[in-house]
Design a protein around this nucleic acid. Structure first.
Length: 966
RNA sequence: GGGCGAUUAGCUCAGUGGAAGAGCGCUUCCUUCACACGGAAGAGGUCGCAGGUUCAAUCCCUGCAUCGCCUACCA
């Protein structure tokens, strides 16, 4: 005898079944599987991360697909892993170090990296454990990490090949610099945020001074408007619009730049918006992207006045040097005020770039960085989507994708941190550059802390500590090559220094054999390695020790499941790299899901404190209910506003399923004798019906899943299990199960078990744990439900569905009367049903008679008369359904007038509907233009109403007569 | 500034060119031998506003409003 507790407790079984699956290797692809391979690579979560709602939705969707395809017989590989999250991870470990009074420079590069690996070993698998809690059926034996050996090889190979083809290059230009993380970041990693700042109006004196030139002109100076007064120190021009009459005559004139005394020129550039500010724009090519462009057009010089830490440097002048950029702003405003050069200031809302990681305001800095030349790669990536080699779902994302790809800029891939793939490039200070300058003269070092040069024999040395400088000079001062490298926080190799890019590490310059080579200290953007994920994880590049079977079998992968927030960061870049290095798309379809927001529609964030923790949800409701909720919310093209009530609702659904199972297994013995395998002509109507509804549901669910319509799939299953299987079929079985013959019982019990098993299988991709638990308990299988066959292609029986519809009509008709007239449920009543019509193949009267005991039980009637010539008993309540009239004698049961009231209410509804239809049917245009079947349908509807109305009217009259005679 | 999306029952959301659906909540009744994490019966919406196309519009088009998001060189 199967024993099940009265309620389902997820916490008791989830870990058990997960361990069972993993132990038996069920997550690994079955290479013998008959259907084609199906591969998903997980969007690698950040190693420092912990599970949030976004992961939960993302992983749930992937798991549903993986389990579904696996049960359908495909060779399924869902490949998991994490990425090394360069900046984030380095930050985490640096924070840890600082608590110990240490720093990365004190440790040195190698020791620091070792320390991060140690951290990773300890904490890096947290997110993996959390994915397992969710039930993710990833093949953990293939788990990868973007910094592991194989993936690092892939990164190196890709970099070298791109270098050889000239697709990666170094250039000196403005980049987005985070003064706190101390690294360059790409355009995408900058978050723009509206901030209320100030617009300062500053007078720039003309030199020599001029008389007023236009009305309103101020003659002696030109006023510029700026939000960043501190950058005045780096101004190299003032620009006006060439069409601007106010300033036309000033073009070419000189200005004495305040606070510096430098002379700069007024130039004309159409970039300038005459309507904004004063129409005069100060140009700081070294600290503003627009200004950089203007500078290039006009060949202006660039003066950097801010350093890598966000402080003013020596070029800012003695008065300001060493100040934080904001402190400097304040001071400069004061100074200008004192000089009478501040004309005014006003509040100003503008958007400012911030570091995505630490939210510090970005400082545009002029530096040499590595870039990927993106144009040709992007063009191919656009074609792949245009030609539908890759399908984005929902399709609307394609527009976004194209728009971004069309305006794509070269990708800055170097990062000034230590944790990551170090760029495989060396510089030789002892070789000469193209213009015959010693490279050592072109390489600048900035030290972490001042270094005191050792005493040089005969020289002074050892006196003044230095903060860095030109390589050659540092050497001359007596600091050794190794010391220079060890102490360098930043190494700036001039653009003209030739990079030596190698597949394998080198220790000497291949040209001059010098052993003083300097490796490029930068590492690559984490996304550079993520871009290779779909093939690097499968074993690319192949070599002797790695035959890359997986790559052959599973590339291109099938579906990528991801959020739109990393469409550009990651998806677009994978497409480019896949096409470039594999010659084929990395995946066929990209399912782009929504963001999970809170109830109010706000993005969840720590600072808002509106985070819902998936692990808390799992604890409270179980992983199954939580997953089902996410799937039910995953409608396409809309964000998810997460609501805990829904989780609770689906938790109840599980309980419903659990208890239906308890009902069924009470009769295990009968089932064991002859299990059912499917439809059979000898079955009775309710069985034919539920099997047909099951077939319908199976079809719907498969269809919805193949279109990524997860919410529709969950709804179909929910509707079927609760409202068809439990509400109707199980109720139908009760009279027979309790009172039928053993043969009747056996058939029904077999059917119950059959439908239960199919339901569990249907549900398994969504609710892996409870389905496994029940399946094992009930069906006593040694394997796993996840390895069983997914229901597919069952036959419907429309005729049975129609017939059952009449039975259900009869029951609801009687129940409505009972309910609305408040007839006590304890009271057994009598009903008469006049059924004289044949609809389709169904003689309604016969159908009802054949199912009489169920109808009686479900309506608590002690007697039901069914026939063609049933006569209405005086004082009956009536319900008119298609093909039948139901009468319930209520005389003596209750007040006649409340029944009259009920019928009048129904009449009002009918009248309203009829007048609407009537208008339509009298409209010649409708009759002329609408398709025939629609007109026909509307006519039928109208006739039905006429019929119903007549009957109800008659009944009202009769009741009224009784009322009077009482 | 440009683009995209949203606006449907009290709440969270589906949906369709032919008189609107679900879950939760609400009302009434019911502790009937799977389940009160339950059952039965109900109430509740001029589908953001204004025009247009159509025999017919919640759905298609235009404009407006509100709210999101993405993107951008208003300093």
């Amino acid at each position: 005898m199967i024993e099940l507790k009265k309620t389902y407790s997820p916490e008791e079984i989830e870990d058990k079944w997960y361990a069972f699956w993993e132990k038996n290797g069920y997550f690994m692809p079955d290479m013998e599987a008959a259907e084609p391979p199906f591969c998903i690579v997980i969007p690698p979560p950040n190693v420092t991360g912990s599970l949030h709602m976004g992961h939960a939705l993302n992983v749930t969707i992937q798991d549903i697909l993986a389990r579904w395809k696996r049960m359908l017989g495909h060779k399924v590989l869902w490949l998991p892993g994490t990425d090394h999250a360069g900046i984030a991870t380095q930050n985490v470990v640096e924070r840890e170090l600082s608590k110990e009074g240490l720093s990365r420079q004190k440790l040195g590069r190698d020791a620091f990296i070792e320390r991060i690996w140690k951290w990773k070993a300890e904490y890096g698998s947290r997110i993996i454990h959390q994915l397992k809690k969710l039930g993710a059926s990833c093949d953990w034996s293939r788990e990868r990490f973007t910094l592991d050996e194989g993936l690092s090889k892939a990164v190196r190979e890709v970099f070298v090949r791109l270098f050889e083809e000239g697709l990666v290059y170094r250039d000196n230009r403005l980049i987005n610099w985070c003064p706190r993380c101390h690294t360059a970041i790409s355009d995408l990693e900058v978050e723009h945020e509206e901030i209320e700042g100030k617009l300062y109006f500053i007078k720039y004196p003309l030199t020599p001074p001029l008389a007023p030139l236009a009305k309103g002109g101020k003659g002696g100076y030109i006023t510029v408007a700026t939000t960043r007064p501190e950058t005045i120190l780096g101004d190299t021009a003032v620009a006006v619009n060439p069409e601007d009459d106010r300033y036309k005559n000033l073009i070419g004139k000189n200005i004495e730049l305040p606070l510096t005394g430098r002379k700069i020129q007024i130039i004309a550039d159409s970039l300038v918006d005459t309507a904004f500010g004063t129409g005069a724009l100060k140009i700081t090519p070294a600290h503003d992207f627009n200004d950089e462009a203007v500078g290039k057009r006009h060949k202006l010089s660039s003066i950097s006045v801010i350093d890598e830490d966000g402080f003013m440097n020596e070029r800012a002048g003695r008065r300001y040097s060493g100040l934080d950029r904001y402190a400097c702003r304040k001071k400069i405003v004061e100074d200008l005020k004192e000089l009478g050069l501040l004309e005014g200031e006003k509040r100003h809302l503008h958007s400012i770039g911030h570091c995505y990681r630490c939210k510090t305001a970005i400082e545009p800095l002029l530096t040499v960085q590595w870039y990927v030349k993106i144009e040709s790669l992007a063009a191919d990536a656009v074609s792949a989507v245009e030609e539908k080699k890759i399908k984005l779902v929902p399709e609307q994302w394609e527009n976004n994708y194209f728009a971004w790809m069309r305006e794509i800029k070269d990708w800055c891939i170097s990062r000034q941190i230590w944790w990551g793939h170090q760029i495989p490039v060396w510089y030789c200070p002892d070789c000469f550059s193209e213009n015959r300058v010693l490279n050592g003269e072109l390489i600048e070092h900035i030290f972490f802390e001042p270094v005191t040069p050792p005493l040089i024999k005969g020289g002074k040395g050892g006196v003044n500590a230095i903060t860095g400088g030109i390589y050659s000079e540092l050497r001359k001062s007596g600091i050794s090559h190794d010391e220079i490298i060890k102490n360098s926080k930043i190494i700036k190799a001039h653009k003209s220094v030739k990079p030596i890019c190698e597949r394998y590490d080198i220790t000497a310059c291949p040209e001059c054999m010098s052993r003083n080579i300097i490796r490029d200290p930068d590492v690559l953007d984490t996304w550079f390695s993520s871009a290779l994920w779909p093939f690097s994880t499968l074993g690319w590049p192949a070599n002797a020790s790695n035959n890359s079977e997986d790559l052959k079998t599973f590339y291109p992968t099938n579906t990528l499941v991801t959020g739109f927030d990393i469409l550009f960061f990651w998806v677009a870049r994978m497409i480019m790299m896949g096409l470039k290095f594999m010659g084929d798309v990395p995946f066929r379809e990209v399912y782009i899901h929504a963001l999970v927001r809170d109830l109010k529609g706000q993005k969840m964030s720590k600072s808002k404190g509106n985070i819902i923790d998936p692990l808390v949800m799992i604890d409270k409701y179980g992983a199954d209910a939580f997953r089902f909720t996410l799937a039910a919310f995953a409608a396409q093209g809309r964000d998810v506003r997460f609501s805990e009530d829904r989780v609770e609702g689906y938790r109840h659904f599980i309980n419903k399923l659990w208890n239906a199972t308890r009902y069924i297994v009470n009769n295990e013995e009968a089932w064991l004798q002859k299990p059912m395998h499917g439809r059979d002509a000898s079955l009775k109507l309710p069985e034919q019906w539920i099997l047909s509804r099951l077939a319908f549901t199976v079809d719907e669910v498969n269809k919805h899943l193949s279109h990524y319509r997860f919410n529709d799939a969950t709804n179909s299953i929910y509707q079927f299990i609760w409202h068809e299987f439990c509400d109707w079929y199980i109720e139908f079985t009760k009279p027979i199960l309790y009172k039928g013959s053993s043969e009747e019982r056996a058939t029904i019990i077999n059917c119950l078990f059959f439908v239960l098993e199919k339901s569990l299988q249907l549900l398994h991709p969504f609710m892996p744990y409870v389905t496994e638990d029940i399946w094992h308990n009930v069906f006593k299988q040694s394997k796993s439900i996840m390895m069983s066959k997914y229901p597919d292609a069952m036959e419907r029986d429309i005729d049975a569905e129609e017939k059952m519809g009449h039975v259900i009509d009869a029951i609801t008709g009687i129940r409505s009367i009972r309910g609305e007239l408040n007839i006590s449920p304890a009271l057994e009543i009598r009903a008469d049903i006049k059924a004289d019509i044949k609809i389709g193949s169904a003689d309604i009267g016969n159908v009802l008679k054949e199912n009489l005991s169920a109808i009686m039980k479900l309506t608590r009637c002690r007697e039901i008369k069914i026939g063609k010539d049933i006569r209405r008993v005086k004082g009956s309540a009536v319900s008119v359904k298609e093909g039948m009239e139901i009468y319930i004698p209520i005389e003596g049961l209750l007040d006649i007038s409340s029944e009259v009231l009920r019928l009048k209410k129904e009449m009002a509804k009918i009248n309203e509907a009829m007048s609407f239809l009537n208008k339509k049917l009298l409209n010649e245009d409708f009759l002329k233009n609408a398709p025939n079947d629609i007109v026909q349908k509307e006519r039928e509807k109208f006739n039905d109403f006429v019929n119903k109305k007549e009957k109800i009217e008659e009944n009202i009259d009769l009741l009224k007569q009784i009322g009077k005679s009482q």
